[in-house]
Simulated scan of single mutants.
Amino acid sequence: MVKHIVLFKLKEELPATEKQAVMNQFKEAIEALPAKISVIRKIEVGLNVNPAEAWDIALYSEFDSLEDVKTYAVHPDHVAAGKLLADVKLNRACVDYEF
């Protein structure tokens, strides 16, 4: 099994209402993916509520293998969800590890 954890930092100049709207849209899109991508075993998106922390969004997911993570990464519905952050993302960090 592989855990896939991704953190996103959005641009600082983004107005708060727009930032929250984009974060909510991303969460909804990602959490709808298990119905469309069979290799996802578990997925959730957390939106940071602590303004003292650096990252805005945490994505946590589980897969049977790294190959399944790769299948998920290129799936058109996942790519479309990722595009929701394309213009507002400042940074991204990712870790994939076996458990």
Rank of each mutant, 00 (worst) to 15 (best):
L59C: 03
K70I: 06
Y97S: 02
A81N: 05
K42S: 09
T71D: 04
K27S: 03
P34W: 10
L10G: 05
Q25M: 10
I40D: 01
M23A: 15
A16Q: 12
D96A: 06
F8E: 02
L84F: 06
V22I: 15
T17H: 12
L14I: 12
A73E: 13
L90H: 11
Y72A: 00
F8H: 09
E53T: 15
E44F: 02
P51Q: 10
A54F: 08
L59W: 03
P15Y: 11
D77Y: 04
R92H: 02
G46E: 02
K70L: 12
A73D: 13
D68H: 15
D64R: 15
I5A: 04
V6S: 05
I57F: 07
L33W: 04
A80H: 07
P76R: 07
N91Y: 08
E12I: 13
P51Y: 11
A80W: 09
L14M: 11
A35Q: 14
H75W: 03
L14D: 05
E18F: 06
D96K: 10
E53R: 15
E31D: 07
A29E: 05
L33D: 03
P34T: 08
V69I: 14
K3S: 10
A93V: 15
V69Y: 10
D77V: 06
V6K: 09
E12V: 14
V95A: 14
A29H: 04
V2N: 05
K36A: 06
N91K: 15
V79T: 11
H4P: 03
